[in-house]
Amino acid sequence: MYQTLEIERAGKVATIWMNRPAVFNAFDEQLIAELAAACKELDADDSVRIVILGGRGKHFSAGADLNWMKRASQFTHEQNVEDARKFAGMLRTLAEMGKPTIARVQGAALGGGTGLTAACDMAVASDDAAFSTSEVKFGIIPSAISPYVLRAIGPRHALRYFQSAERISAQRALAIGLVGEVVSRDELDSCIAGIVDALLAGGPQAQKAAKDLIAAVHGQPIDEIISEETAQRIARQRATDEAKDGIAAFLDKRPPAWL
Protein backbone atom coordinates (compact mmCIF):
# COMPACT_ATOMS: atom_id res chain seq x y z
CA MET A 1 0.00 0.00 0.00
CA TYR A 2 2.84 2.40 0.85
CA GLN A 3 5.91 3.06 -1.29
CA THR A 4 7.91 5.21 1.13
CA LEU A 5 6.80 3.69 4.45
CA GLU A 6 6.60 0.37 6.25
CA ILE A 7 4.09 -0.28 9.02
CA GLU A 8 5.19 -2.86 11.55
CA ARG A 9 2.69 -4.21 14.09
CA ALA A 10 3.53 -5.93 17.36
CA GLY A 11 0.50 -6.55 19.53
CA LYS A 12 -1.09 -3.20 20.35
CA VAL A 13 1.87 -1.18 19.07
CA ALA A 14 2.34 -0.01 15.48
CA THR A 15 5.59 1.48 14.17
CA ILE A 16 5.59 3.70 11.11
CA TRP A 17 9.00 3.39 9.49
CA MET A 18 10.00 6.07 7.00
CA ASN A 19 11.75 3.95 4.42
CA ARG A 20 13.94 6.10 2.16
CA PRO A 21 17.33 5.34 3.75
CA ALA A 22 19.26 6.15 0.57
CA VAL A 23 18.25 9.82 1.01
CA PHE A 24 18.26 9.71 4.83
CA ASN A 25 14.45 9.56 4.87
CA ALA A 26 14.14 13.05 3.39
CA PHE A 27 10.53 13.68 2.55
CA ASP A 28 8.86 14.72 -0.66
CA GLU A 29 5.25 14.92 -1.82
CA GLN A 30 4.79 11.14 -1.70
CA LEU A 31 6.23 10.61 1.78
CA ILE A 32 4.14 13.51 3.12
CA ALA A 33 0.96 12.07 1.63
CA GLU A 34 1.73 8.56 2.86
CA LEU A 35 2.58 9.71 6.39
CA ALA A 36 -0.75 11.52 6.61
CA ALA A 37 -2.59 8.45 5.31
CA ALA A 38 -0.77 6.09 7.69
CA CYS A 39 -1.56 8.27 10.70
CA LYS A 40 -5.24 8.34 9.76
CA GLU A 41 -5.27 4.58 9.18
CA LEU A 42 -3.72 3.76 12.55
CA ASP A 43 -5.77 6.33 14.43
CA ALA A 44 -8.92 4.62 13.18
CA ASP A 45 -7.66 1.13 14.09
CA ASP A 46 -8.95 0.22 17.56
CA SER A 47 -6.47 -2.66 17.80
CA VAL A 48 -3.61 -0.13 17.89
CA ARG A 49 -2.95 1.56 21.22
CA ILE A 50 0.42 3.25 20.58
CA VAL A 51 2.15 4.58 17.45
CA ILE A 52 5.93 4.88 17.10
CA LEU A 53 7.50 6.92 14.29
CA GLY A 54 10.97 5.86 13.17
CA GLY A 55 13.33 6.03 10.22
CA ARG A 56 15.10 3.14 8.52
CA GLY A 57 18.86 3.31 8.19
CA LYS A 58 21.37 5.58 9.89
CA HIS A 59 19.16 8.64 10.18
CA PHE A 60 15.66 9.51 11.37
CA SER A 61 15.02 12.16 8.71
CA ALA A 62 17.21 14.73 6.99
CA GLY A 63 14.14 16.93 6.44
CA ALA A 64 12.91 18.11 3.10
CA ASP A 65 14.17 16.48 -0.08
CA LEU A 66 15.98 19.33 -1.83
CA ASN A 67 14.75 18.16 -5.22
CA TRP A 68 11.22 18.59 -3.89
CA MET A 69 12.09 22.05 -2.57
CA LYS A 70 13.60 22.98 -5.94
CA ARG A 71 10.39 21.94 -7.68
CA ALA A 72 8.35 23.92 -5.16
CA SER A 73 10.42 27.04 -5.81
CA GLN A 74 9.14 27.00 -9.40
CA PHE A 75 5.47 26.68 -8.42
CA THR A 76 2.91 29.40 -8.88
CA HIS A 77 1.71 31.04 -5.68
CA GLU A 78 -1.43 28.89 -5.67
CA GLN A 79 0.57 25.70 -6.22
CA ASN A 80 3.02 26.71 -3.49
CA VAL A 81 0.25 27.31 -0.98
CA GLU A 82 -1.45 24.01 -1.79
CA ASP A 83 1.84 22.12 -1.46
CA ALA A 84 2.61 23.79 1.88
CA ARG A 85 -0.89 22.98 3.15
CA LYS A 86 -0.25 19.27 2.58
CA PHE A 87 2.90 19.36 4.72
CA ALA A 88 1.21 21.38 7.45
CA GLY A 89 -1.78 19.05 7.31
CA MET A 90 0.39 15.96 7.70
CA LEU A 91 2.06 17.38 10.79
CA ARG A 92 -1.31 18.27 12.29
CA THR A 93 -2.66 14.80 11.57
CA LEU A 94 0.31 13.29 13.41
CA ALA A 95 0.07 15.72 16.32
CA GLU A 96 -3.68 15.24 16.76
CA MET A 97 -3.76 11.46 16.76
CA GLY A 98 -6.05 10.20 19.53
CA LYS A 99 -3.48 7.76 20.89
CA PRO A 100 0.05 8.18 22.27
CA THR A 101 2.82 8.79 19.72
CA ILE A 102 6.56 8.33 20.24
CA ALA A 103 9.35 9.56 17.96
CA ARG A 104 12.26 7.10 17.75
CA VAL A 105 15.15 9.32 16.67
CA GLN A 106 18.65 8.33 15.61
CA GLY A 107 21.22 10.26 13.63
CA ALA A 108 20.03 13.33 11.75
CA ALA A 109 16.63 14.85 12.45
CA LEU A 110 16.96 18.09 10.56
CA GLY A 111 14.40 20.70 9.48
CA GLY A 112 11.18 18.79 9.03
CA GLY A 113 12.77 15.90 10.90
CA THR A 114 12.90 18.15 13.95
CA GLY A 115 9.28 19.02 13.24
CA LEU A 116 8.24 15.37 13.15
CA THR A 117 10.04 14.81 16.46
CA ALA A 118 8.18 17.72 18.06
CA ALA A 119 4.81 16.75 16.57
CA CYS A 120 4.91 13.41 18.40
CA ASP A 121 3.72 13.35 22.01
CA MET A 122 7.12 12.20 23.24
CA ALA A 123 10.55 11.50 21.78
CA VAL A 124 13.48 9.22 22.59
CA ALA A 125 16.80 10.02 20.89
CA SER A 126 20.08 8.21 20.49
CA ASP A 127 23.08 10.00 21.92
CA ASP A 128 24.38 10.69 18.41
CA ALA A 129 21.18 12.34 17.25
CA ALA A 130 21.36 15.87 15.87
CA PHE A 131 18.56 18.35 15.31
CA SER A 132 18.27 21.67 13.53
CA THR A 133 15.71 24.15 12.32
CA SER A 134 17.97 24.69 9.34
CA GLU A 135 15.54 26.42 6.98
CA VAL A 136 17.13 29.90 7.04
CA LYS A 137 20.26 28.39 5.48
CA PHE A 138 18.15 27.90 2.35
CA GLY A 139 16.45 31.28 2.54
CA ILE A 140 13.19 29.88 3.91
CA ILE A 141 11.59 29.61 7.37
CA PRO A 142 10.46 26.68 9.59
CA SER A 143 6.87 27.77 9.25
CA ALA A 144 4.84 24.54 9.14
CA ILE A 145 6.84 22.92 11.95
CA SER A 146 6.84 26.03 14.15
CA PRO A 147 3.70 25.28 16.25
CA TYR A 148 5.12 21.94 17.34
CA VAL A 149 8.72 23.03 17.89
CA LEU A 150 7.54 26.09 19.83
CA ARG A 151 5.32 23.85 21.95
CA ALA A 152 8.36 21.70 22.76
CA ILE A 153 11.12 24.26 23.34
CA GLY A 154 9.35 27.58 23.93
CA PRO A 155 9.81 30.94 22.19
CA ARG A 156 13.14 31.88 23.79
CA HIS A 157 15.01 28.88 22.40
CA ALA A 158 13.09 29.14 19.12
CA LEU A 159 14.28 32.74 18.66
CA ARG A 160 17.83 31.44 18.70
CA TYR A 161 17.56 28.27 16.69
CA PHE A 162 15.04 29.46 14.07
CA GLN A 163 17.51 32.23 13.19
CA SER A 164 20.89 30.59 13.75
CA ALA A 165 20.09 27.15 12.30
CA GLU A 166 22.72 25.72 14.65
CA ARG A 167 22.96 21.98 15.12
CA ILE A 168 21.38 20.87 18.37
CA SER A 169 23.02 17.87 20.00
CA ALA A 170 20.98 15.15 21.63
CA GLN A 171 21.95 16.37 25.10
CA ARG A 172 21.05 19.96 24.20
CA ALA A 173 17.73 18.73 22.78
CA LEU A 174 17.09 17.02 26.11
CA ALA A 175 17.93 20.18 28.04
CA ILE A 176 15.56 22.40 26.04
CA GLY A 177 12.68 19.91 25.99
CA LEU A 178 12.75 18.73 22.38
CA VAL A 179 13.25 15.10 23.50
CA GLY A 180 12.45 13.38 26.76
CA GLU A 181 15.16 10.68 26.85
CA VAL A 182 18.66 10.26 25.41
CA VAL A 183 20.20 6.79 25.29
CA SER A 184 22.71 4.89 23.19
CA ARG A 185 21.52 3.48 19.86
CA ASP A 186 21.59 0.01 21.36
CA GLU A 187 19.22 1.13 24.12
CA LEU A 188 16.70 2.98 21.95
CA ASP A 189 14.22 0.15 21.61
CA SER A 190 14.45 -1.00 25.22
CA CYS A 191 13.90 2.55 26.46
CA ILE A 192 10.85 2.93 24.21
CA ALA A 193 9.58 -0.47 25.35
CA GLY A 194 9.58 0.78 28.94
CA ILE A 195 7.51 3.81 27.95
CA VAL A 196 5.16 1.58 25.95
CA ASP A 197 4.60 -0.68 28.96
CA ALA A 198 3.68 2.34 31.08
CA LEU A 199 1.31 3.65 28.40
CA LEU A 200 -0.43 0.31 27.95
CA ALA A 201 -1.35 0.33 31.65
CA GLY A 202 -3.51 3.42 31.15
CA GLY A 203 -7.04 3.57 29.78
CA PRO A 204 -7.08 4.42 26.06
CA GLN A 205 -10.10 6.72 26.30
CA ALA A 206 -8.56 8.46 29.30
CA GLN A 207 -5.31 8.99 27.38
CA LYS A 208 -7.16 10.61 24.50
CA ALA A 209 -9.07 12.76 26.97
CA ALA A 210 -5.75 13.72 28.61
CA LYS A 211 -4.36 14.87 25.26
CA ASP A 212 -7.51 16.91 24.64
CA LEU A 213 -7.24 18.37 28.15
CA ILE A 214 -3.71 19.64 27.54
CA ALA A 215 -4.78 21.29 24.28
CA ALA A 216 -7.73 22.97 26.01
CA VAL A 217 -5.88 24.18 29.13
CA HIS A 218 -2.41 25.13 27.89
CA GLY A 219 -1.89 28.86 27.65
CA GLN A 220 -5.24 29.74 29.19
CA PRO A 221 -5.53 32.03 32.21
CA ILE A 222 -6.37 30.27 35.46
CA ASP A 223 -9.78 31.79 36.03
CA GLU A 224 -13.40 30.80 36.59
CA ILE A 225 -13.80 29.76 32.95
CA ILE A 226 -10.89 27.32 33.00
CA SER A 227 -11.91 26.01 36.44
CA GLU A 228 -15.35 25.21 35.08
CA GLU A 229 -13.85 23.66 31.95
CA THR A 230 -11.68 21.29 33.98
CA ALA A 231 -14.56 20.40 36.29
CA GLN A 232 -16.77 19.54 33.32
CA ARG A 233 -14.07 17.40 31.76
CA ILE A 234 -13.40 15.26 34.83
CA ALA A 235 -17.14 14.88 35.45
CA ARG A 236 -17.64 13.57 31.90
CA GLN A 237 -14.68 11.23 32.17
CA ARG A 238 -15.76 9.76 35.52
CA ALA A 239 -19.08 8.83 33.94
CA THR A 240 -17.51 6.70 31.20
CA ASP A 241 -17.60 2.91 31.28
CA GLU A 242 -13.81 2.89 31.11
CA ALA A 243 -13.48 5.00 34.27
CA LYS A 244 -16.07 2.96 36.14
CA ASP A 245 -14.25 -0.24 35.27
CA GLY A 246 -10.83 1.23 36.09
CA ILE A 247 -11.90 2.33 39.57
CA ALA A 248 -13.71 -0.94 40.24
CA ALA A 249 -10.71 -2.94 39.04
CA PHE A 250 -8.43 -1.10 41.46
CA LEU A 251 -10.77 -1.72 44.38
CA ASP A 252 -11.30 -5.36 43.37
CA LYS A 253 -7.55 -5.89 42.88
CA ARG A 254 -8.02 -7.12 39.32
CA PRO A 255 -6.75 -5.88 35.93
CA PRO A 256 -9.01 -3.36 34.15
CA ALA A 257 -10.77 -4.41 30.96
CA TRP A 258 -8.30 -2.63 28.64
CA LEU A 259 -5.51 -4.93 29.83
Rank of each mutant, 00 (worst) to 15 (best):
residue 208 K to E: 08
residue 195 I to E: 07
residue 167 R to C: 03
residue 190 S to Q: 15
residue 35 L to I: 14
residue 240 T to F: 02
residue 202 G to P: 00
residue 46 D to L: 10
residue 94 L to R: 06
residue 14 A to V: 15
residue 149 V to L: 10
residue 92 R to Y: 03
residue 185 R to V: 12
residue 169 S to W: 10
residue 158 A to H: 04
residue 212 D to L: 13
residue 17 W to S: 03
residue 50 I to W: 08
residue 75 F to L: 03
residue 181 E to Q: 14
residue 151 R to P: 03
residue 86 K to Q: 08
residue 234 I to C: 02
residue 112 G to W: 09
residue 213 L to C: 06
residue 107 G to Q: 07
residue 71 R to T: 10
residue 105 V to R: 05
residue 43 D to R: 01
residue 138 F to Y: 13
residue 15 T to L: 05
residue 240 T to V: 15
residue 201 A to D: 10
residue 50 I to C: 04
residue 135 E to G: 01
residue 147 P to W: 09
residue 248 A to F: 09
residue 59 H to W: 06
residue 78 E to Y: 04
residue 158 A to K: 05
residue 65 D to S: 02
residue 107 G to A: 03
residue 64 A to K: 08
residue 132 S to K: 03
residue 248 A to V: 13
residue 134 S to K: 02
residue 189 D to W: 13
residue 80 N to C: 01
residue 154 G to S: 04
residue 31 L to W: 08
residue 186 D to M: 14
residue 195 I to C: 05
residue 101 T to K: 10
residue 18 M to V: 11
residue 221 P to S: 03
residue 182 V to G: 04
residue 173 A to C: 01
residue 174 L to T: 07
residue 81 V to L: 10
residue 30 Q to T: 14
residue 150 L to V: 13
residue 103 A to T: 10
residue 147 P to D: 03
residue 26 A to C: 12
residue 7 I to C: 04
residue 121 D to G: 11
residue 6 E to L: 13
residue 164 S to T: 15
residue 141 I to R: 13
residue 95 A to V: 00
residue 102 I to M: 00
residue 237 Q to F: 12
residue 93 T to N: 03
residue 247 I to A: 08
residue 121 D to K: 06
residue 41 E to L: 02
residue 159 L to V: 15
residue 111 G to L: 04
residue 31 L to F: 09
residue 35 L to S: 03
residue 112 G to H: 04
residue 173 A to K: 03
residue 183 V to A: 02
residue 117 T to K: 01
residue 36 A to S: 10
residue 117 T to W: 00
